[in-house]
Every structure is written in C-alpha cells, then in structure tokens.
C-alpha cells in the first residue's frame, strides 16, 4: 500500500523535513504557486498538486503561463462577474486545473455550471451548513445527466462514474479528506487526518515519523471506521437510501431530517441512470465456422 500523500503549507524548511513523499502544497496566492511547485520538486518529493487557497474571486486570480501543466486545485470563494472572468476561463481550459467553489448561494451554484459547461473542471463544496439541497440536487443532475458534453463536476461525476451498487464509495479524496490517502501537516509539521482537524488543532502525531506508531495508527483506524457508529447507534443515516455514497459524512454537521438524504438518494438514482446510459452495448455474436 502506498504512503499517504502529504498536504502541507508552502514552507521550504518544512518541505525539506521529509523525502520521497507525494505532496499537495498549499499557497494562498496564485503568484506563489509556481515557486511552490518548483520547491517541492527540489526537495526530493513528488508534486501531487498545488492547492491555491485564494480569498479572491476567480475573476481576480491570475495564473501565469508557467503554471500550465502543473496540477492545480484552485479554491475560491466565488467566480465574480462572468464578463470579467470569461477571458481567464477561456485560458484555464488549457490548464491542468480544478476549481473549487462553495455552494453557499445561487451565484456559486450557477458559477459551477458555467465553469463545467465551458470545459473547466470544477468541484462543489457543500455540507457546510444551511445548504440548499434542492439547488445542489439540480447541480448534480446537470453534472451527471446534462444534455451536452461538459467538463466533470465533482464529486458528482466521480460518484456517477464509480458508483457500484455492491460497495461503498468514499469520495473524500477529492477534497483531500481521506486519512488513508492524505495526511495534513501544519507549519510545524504536526499531523492531522483532515483539513478541518488540522484547523481545529486535532493532531494525531507530532511529526510524520510518528505516524507509524500505534496511537497514530489507531487514530487512522478509528477514523476510517467512524461510519460504523451509524449502524451501532441505528442512526437515520444507517437507513438512508443515499448511504452508500455518503457514509454519513454529514451526520455530525447537519440536523436530522435535513435535505441531504433526499439529495444523496437522488445522487444514487442519477448514478444508476448514468451507468445505464453509458453501459457498452452488448456485443453481437457472429457465427464462426
């Protein structure tokens, strides 16, 4: 099993503290992205992607030409006005790029559709409280069953393509939130299992070297098995028709009876329909002598 990737802030000393790892380096300014990518390569690690965590709307984010070809995850609060973002969007089609926008309003939900329809890969952030599940459901329907080819919109496209009726599907890795695949370091090298836990100061190890120790391993095990608590406690999530593609991700964040259940049930149905639509035609057997 390969080692988890490291998500860490852009700090050359920090990058020098470990070797041979796949790294998703975080910057808060797109102008620093190229340097960050370079320094990761120079540190003896492999670049997974550069995460640009910007406070600016997309219309104000500039990506230099040298970033073309570098995998980028651009997280922005909004698109801004389309008329001002359109030139950038046109250029970004040729970048190895995924844009993350929060579904915190109708404007951003529309922005995600616009990006996807214009060939820019995008990713919807939801489950952050007060979600408009109906609007997210419309967004999902567009992403999975839209009439005309468009760039993928996560997590919907991922779920639709990878849905298996006989298994669970965990798509947390799209958000770098999967303790089996990503470890989050802060500036001091302390290790958390997700961005949220890092921001909350919930560390499982003081440094990467401690990750093989029993406490860290137990924390990972407990985290990856957290979903079983739903069955143990017979929660609403345990019998939700959308369980297989949610695994109770939002059970702690949202009040019971929220729209997430309807949404994920719709997600499952859309995934099933997607599978039917994209199933290869059955091969005609031609007789052979």
């Amino acid at each position: 099993m390969s080692l988890p990737r490291i998500v860490c802030p852009y700090s050359p000393p920090l990058l020098q503290s470990f070797r041979g790892r796949s790294v998703a380096v975080r910057v808060d300014d797109a102008a620093r992205a190229a340097h960050a990518a370079y320094d990761v390569a120079q540190s003896g690690n492999e670049l997974f992607c550069v995460i640009v965590e910007s406070r600016l709307p997309l219309q104000d984010i500039s990506l230099s030409e040298e970033l073309r070809g570098i995998p980028l995850a651009v997280m922005a609060p909004s698109m801004g006005r389309f008329r001002d973002a359109s030139e950038k969007i046109k250029a970004w089609r040729n970048f190895n790029l995924r844009v993350y926008l929060p579904c915190d309003g109708a404007a951003n939900i529309t922005a995600l559709k616009i990006l996807s329809s214009l060939g820019v890969q995008s990713c919807a952030l939801f489950g952050i409280g007060h979600d408009d599940w109906e609007a997210i459901s419309d967004l999902m329907t567009y992403a999975v069953l839209g009439l005309f080819p468009h760039a993928s919109m996560e997590p919907f496209s991922f779920i639709a393509k990878n849905y298996d009726a006989g298994d669970y599907l965990d798509w947390g890795a799209l958000y770098f939130d999967d303790p089996k695949k990503f470890l989050h370091l802060d500036g001091e090298g302390r290790v958390a299992l997700s961005r949220a836990e890092r921001e909350a100061g919930q560390f499982v190890a003081g440094c990467l070297a401690e990750c093989d120790a029993a406490p860290a391993l137990a924390a990972v095990r407990e985290r990856t098995r957290a979903w079983t608590a739903n069955f143990l406690n017979n929660t609403v999530c345990s019998r939700c028709p959308g369980w297989k593609v949610c695994l109770g991700k939002f059970s702690a964040l949202l009040p019971e009876g929220s729209g997430c259940s309807d949404f994920f049930a719709s997600m499952v149905e859309a995934a099933r329909q997607y599978k039917r639509l994209t199933a290869p035609p059955s091969e005609m057997q031609v007789w052979r002598p």
């Binding site: 559709k113 329809s117 567009y142 009439l147 005309f148």
Partner: peptide
C-alpha cells in the same frame, strides 16, 4: 436566468 440559459445552450448545441 443563468440556469435556464445554460440548459437552453446545451439543448440547442446537442
């Protein structure tokens, strides 16, 4: 609305 425009564009182009 934007959403309807996107749908119409998809519809027409398809």
């Amino acid at each position: 609305s934007w959403d309807n425009l996107i749908y119409i564009a998809d519809f027409l182009q398809s």
